[in-house]
Structures are given as structure tokens and as C-alpha cells.
Design a protein around this nucleic acid. Sequence first.
DNA 1: ACCAATTTGTCCGTATGTATG
DNA 2: TCATACATACGGACAAATTGG
Lengths: 252, 252
Amino acid sequence: MTQITTRFERIKARPAYELVAEAIEKKILAGRLKPGDPVGTESELVRQFGVNRSTVREGIRLLEQSGLVAREPSRRLSVAVPHYHRLATRMTRALILQQVTFRELWHTSRALEPAAVDQAMDNATEEDLAELAVNVDETRKVRRDPAAVAELDAEFHKLIGKATHNRVLLLAKEPSGMLVRSTTALIILSNPTGIPRLIAAHEHILEALQRRDREKGRLWVDRHLRDWKAGFERSGRDLDTPVELYERTRGE
Amino acid sequence: MTQITTRFERIKARPAYELVAEAIEKKILAGRLKPGDPVGTESELVRQFGVNRSTVREGIRLLEQSGLVAREPSRRLSVAVPHYHRLATRMTRALILQQVTFRELWHTSRALEPAAVDQAMDNATEEDLAELAVNVDETRKVRRDPAAVAELDAEFHKLIGKATHNRVLLLAKEPSGMLVRSTTALIILSNPTGIPRLIAAHEHILEALQRRDREKGRLWVDRHLRDWKAGFERSGRDLDTPVELYERTRGE
DNA sequence: ACCAATTTGTCCGTATGTATG
DNA sequence: TCATACATACGGACAAATTGG
């Protein structure tokens, strides 16, 4: 009996709000709506799609989340270029939920960080270097404040990423970067004695970039990463336990 | 006058539907709602948040898109683990919209692919190797069909990623992997003479993995990547033009 | 296999605050 | 300043699907 019914494919009646979202998305990806273009008012979309206002709104929410459309200050809806950070946040959450281990994070950083410094060797502008110099300076100043150091360390690595001027690499690095940030904070807070070595490494990496000294850069990124792993192990954690998310405690 | 008013921070009145989404999201990320758990019915959420059902529904759409919650076959809403592919698709779209260049993609692959093979050296199981062997075999069989080869090449690299058993690396690789797939398809279709070299490289990489021969693996990934770049250049394209999305023509 | 309750998807109308001209 | 347009939010309604007796 059931065998006969299975001769037909399951009919997937998709909700109207999904279809609305998909229709708009396709128009954007096909290039018929470019970043900055207005998507139209809700009432217009209601007329065009022939569905209710609520349905249109639900469809818009789907797109809004992926960053494909965004609200202008005027609240009008326009096509946007999805920003990395938003996407990376989603990915990082996925990784946390999957309970990825420090070991996985370690091996990935081992590939990405040296690659980033290497790319920055070629592409870093004077402005990039200046920003890094400011960051290193700041870090030196707050060296007694572990939380601040952790914060600035994360920024340092983010600036390196920016200095690569490679958007693909930047996006690949971002999710693991957010986990690295969490982990580094935990390491530094549980044992601040590694801070001088961290600062020294940043200094040397910056110097290497300034002199376009590829060898030196590679060497110090290597040391920096090894210190990071050693710090993690010294904090008594196991390499194969899931990485935790260190949330900065802020208001709200 | 305006100076006085600026003594207060801008009050950011966030829409209710965003707050709904955030509240649920936080509960999930805090671990108080685990994957598989029911989120509750819309009416329940209406009662708990004290907002209208439309508002709740809009909030749900936000979460739904990010993959944090999903509808079961019964249409009930439950907590889900965001799947890579979904997220990677979003990211890839972002990269396309940003018009990233082949050069950026190239330098990123240059870091990620060798790292993946290296990790696979340590972590590939017999099953992983068997899957790769099947893939290489298939590729040999369809060597006269460029489109099929491109398809199987993409699968080969995906299998390598799987064999690393490193979820962080896997996620980092995925977005660029999708762009690589597009580009490879274009290269192969415009000039199929490179196919034998591609197959040979796959064979050698597989062999290296089987023998856990790290050196050989590195060597052949290197050659494979260089061939890829050479193929791109030979196709007459410029390294600094934006990567195009090669859409497989399918129904709908 | 049938029925009653629940739930989702969709629609309608309306009120309110805000941005724009 | 005023009027208009728009996004946000609310209340109520109904059909179809699903669940649980």
C-alpha cells in the first residue's frame, strides 16, 4: 500500500514568506538589485507579491538576518553587502555548539596566522603598520591589566588580517579568530606571566612587517603560536575539551 | 546648544522582534536550550514575552535563517545545530558580492589546502581513504567529460576536508572551497587539456595519504595548486578580476 | 479510523511613533 | 510647523495541518 503512494514525490508546500525572501534574494544575486538600491516599501512588496503585509515582513526578516538587506537610518530597506563580522558571529556560534576542541582550533590557526602575516608582508600599507604600532603601544601601556591585554591581542590579530587586504583570507580567519580571542582571554586571565612574551612577539612581528622581513615574521608568528598553546596547556586544560566562549561582561 | 544634548548617549530603541530573537538565542547559547529541545509554541512565546504573535513570528524568522532553530517535520520549532553548508553558502554570497579576486582566492587556498592535507595525514580513517579512492576512480572514468570532472574535483577537496576531522578548518575552508569549485569548473571547461594532470595529482595525493607520506603530500598539493593557477592564467583571465559564480544549470 | 484541540500559516484592520519634505 | 508616508506593533480571525485521545 504505502509503496504505491511513494511513487510520488513529497509535495513540499513552502510557506509564502520563504518564497518572498527567495524572490528578493534571487533578484539581488542576479545583480538586478545592487548594493544600496532600495528594495521598496512593504506596501509595494505587498502589491507585487500579492500577499499580506505580515507575510512580507516575515520574509524580510529572513533576509535581514543574513545581511543581504538592511535598514537605512531612515528605516527604509535597501540592499546591503553582508558584513564579515555578522557572518563570522554566526559561524562562531555554530562552532561553539558543535563543541569544537582547542586542538582543532590550534591546527587551524597554525595554518591561517602565518599565512596572514605572509600576505601582510606584501600588502600592508603604511596606514596598516601605523595602526599596528598604535596597538602594540597600547598593549605595552596596559600590560598590568590582563583583560585589556587580551582585548588588544585580539585587535592585533584582526589588524594583521586587515593588513593582508585579502578578503577571502579575512573571512576564513574570522570565525576561528573569535574563538582564539576567547581562549586567549582565558589563558591570560588565569596566568598573566605570559604577557611580556606576548608583547615581545607582537613587537617583533610588527618590526618584521615594517622591514618586510618574511623570515623574521614567520619565526615570530611561530613562537607566538607556540606560546599560545603552551599557555593553554599550562592553564591545566586538556587539548581535546571543547572551547568555551568567553563573554565579555557588559551591561545588558 | 547641541553640545549640551550630546552629553547623553543616543538611545537605541531596538525593535521588539529583535529582542525576542535575542532572548531565545541567548538561552540557546547559554546551554539552557539544547539542540533538539522544543522552543515552544508561538502562543507560549506570546505569553512569556508579552508581545503580539506577529512580533514573535518575526523574531523566529531571524533565528530560523541563521540555522539556530528549525522546524521539524511536524512544523514544531526546535533548537538546531547550524549546518556548515548553510552558513558557507551565505559567506560565499558575501564574497561574490564583494567581488573578491582570484588572487585573493589563490593566496587563501595556498594556505588552506596544504594544511588540510597535512591534517588528513594524521586523522584520515580507512573509510575516508576509501571514499577518496572511489572519487579518484570515478574521475578517471569520466575524464572525457569536463563538467563531471569539475564536479568530482570539488568533491575530492571536500573529502580531504572531511578527512581532516577538524571542524574549525573545515568551516574555514568551505567558503573559499565553493569559489574554488566555480573557478575550477570554468578553467576545465575552457581548456580540458589539464584534466590528466589534475587526475594524476589527485592520485598522488591519495597515495601520499595512504602511506602517510607527508612530504609527498605537500609536494603534490603544491603542484596541484600551481596547475590550478596556471590553468586560470591560460584561460586568459586576469588574476585581479572578480571571481564569477559558476552556477550549475538546474531546474528552478 | 474518527473527532476535538492545538498550532501554524495567512489575512485584515488599526494605532502609534518617526522620518521626510 | 504641518502633512504625509512608512515601519512597528497590536488585536482578532480563519483554514489547513498535526496531535492526541
